[in-house]
């Protein structure tokens, strides 16, 4: 297990991850990053304001 930090940079600015997540490997981290972004974009889509910049 390794600690991965998921920083988000987009048009709203940057949100740094100070805590990180313990994940098996880089493949798990990529899957996790995609899942995390989908969660945010999903809510943005519901609110009617999707930010794909950054």
């Amino acid at each position: 297990m390794q600690r991965f930090y998921m920083h988000v940079h987009n048009g709203f600015g940057s949100v740094l991850d100070e805590e990180g997540l313990m994940l098996l490997d880089i493949d798990a981290a990529v899957r996790c990053a995609i899942d995390n972004i989908r969660s945010i974009v999903g809510e943005e889509a519901r609110s009617g304001c999707v930010d794909l910049r950054g």
């Binding site: 998921m6 988000v8 949100v15 991850d17 995390n36 945010i40």
Partner: peptide, 22 residues
């Protein structure tokens, strides 16, 4: 609690929690 714990409470992901806290 960690952001991951909060995410598991509220059906979010840790990164989404982090952004929402911001």
């Amino acid at each position: 609690l960690t952001q991951a714990d909060l995410a598991e409470c509220m059906g979010l992901t840790p990164v989404h929690v982090n952004r929402t806290l911001r």
